[in-house]
Design a binder for these strands. Structure first.
Lengths: 232, 232
DNA sequence: CACACTGTTATACAATTGATTAATTTTAAT
DNA sequence: ATTAAAATTAATCAATTGTATAACAGTGTG
């Protein structure tokens, strides 16, 4: 009967491995089914390590949530930065990125929702959520501002912020319902749908955010844009 | 040591009492903290009744989720029906109702999010969610249609449906982020914010959905509408 | 009033939970 | 090679979990 062989990993690597295993288990079995044993088995280690790297299971889960939110906001900022070209193209690319993989992913949404449910009663979760939300709003404002100015729309910090709040609501709602997708509509209508909706929300001329020939390869659907998204 | 005295309640009453206790516990402690013992204590009964009224704890929770979704959609339909007057006033009233109590309630949102997190991996939950979502979309389409027609907007079933999807996303997102409210803005800017956003989303003339003097008492804020929506 | 029915309580049970501790093994420094 | 530090395992703990079962008690029926 020999002991399990193991590797000593650096603090960062091991911590991240445990947090990712935590997220995997929470997504798969819910918060209630994500036991320390399942998580550590998923990470390929034994239970004792939880205490060693995090004080407790709850602490590990909080850290995993922060890790998830960090990934999400980083991904969002990334999508925004990656898009080049006009401010319109950047905003459009950001919106479309949130309606396609990998950003719009059912497992991620499940995770996100599960944690959101704990925000109300756990101050630690609340802080993590608030920071992520603030960051997302900030990114949106940065993207919206030059578009409004460029089109000579009525502009002020307050207007821009209100637009960001509304647009964030739209993104969140479509992101969630779209990812969970109940089969009531095809998911691939969403990129065009949100583009049109954003144009109207910001009172831009129709088509202001639609793809200008090139420039949107990064969304994954470069070639076919067409009929289905035309509400008018 | 005497036994606990008790009342024999009708099947419906007892079942509902157990489901409500379940929702209370899930909201307060999360799915993982909502044990059979806590739930039955909350309901004022002993653990054995779970097996008697529901086959298992999981079955009870599924039923509680369906009960919650039923309440939510009923509340939404109610808000829609309660509003009288022009189609614009009805839609406006519906939107505002979703941005104010009792519809916009942090505990309800927490519950909703917690359950959404299980939709992906539990077919029972998925079906319940889909039915609720379909109902909500249907209500929205019914409200949107006459408004579009009345304003001579471009109209078709497909257009109306796309508008409903977008508007539903907007409502869901704002409802959730607003209820959780992280203190990044005042919650009471939301009724006016969503009204304006909906006007632009549907390409209605500015002010088409703003309160026409009376007609909106049912939202709970009849008298003061104005100044506070300026975040700056 | 006695009866049967069943809603309800009380208790027991095996399984799982998160936490703790001591014994080991890896790793790096000497 | 030796040694010391610490990362990791393995085993144990009391507490809690969901379920099952038998005893009890309230309710309406004859």
């Amino acid at each position: 009967m020999s002991r399990k062989t193991f590797q000593r990993l650096s603090l960062d690597v091991r911590r991240r491995s445990l947090m990712e295993a935590t997220l995997t288990c929470v997504a798969r079995h819910g918060l209630h089914g994500a036991s320390v044993r399942r998580i550590t088995e998923e990470a390929g280690v034994t239970v004792g390590l939880v205490r060693h790297y995090f004080g407790s299971k709850d602490d590990m889960i909080r850290n995993a949530y922060a890790y998830l939110v960090g990934q999400l906001t980083a991904q969002a900022s990334e999508s925004a930065r990656a898009a080049e070209g006009t401010p319109e193209a950047q905003l459009a690319s950001f919106l479309r990125a949130n309606m396609t993989r990998p950003n719009m992913d059912e497992e991620t949404v499940s995770l996100w929702a599960t944690f959101i449910g704990r925000v109300r009663h756990d101050p630690g979760f609340a802080e993590i959520h608030r920071d992520g939300y603030r960051e997302f709003l900030s990114v949106l404002e940065t993207l919206i501002e030059p578009v409004l100015i460029h089109h000579g729309c009525p502009y002020s910090v307050a207007i821009c912020r209100n637009h960001a709040i509304a647009l964030n609501g739209l993104i969140d709602g479509l992101w969630m319902e779209g990812a969970i997708n109940s089969g009531l509509y095809a998911q691939d209508i969403l990129p065009d749908l949100i583009t049109g909706a954003a144009e109207r929300l910001l009172e831009l001329p129709a088509g202001a955010l639609s793809v200008p020939d090139i420039a949107l390869q990064s969304t994954g659907h470069p070639t076919h844009r067409e009929q289905q998204s035309k509400p008018s």
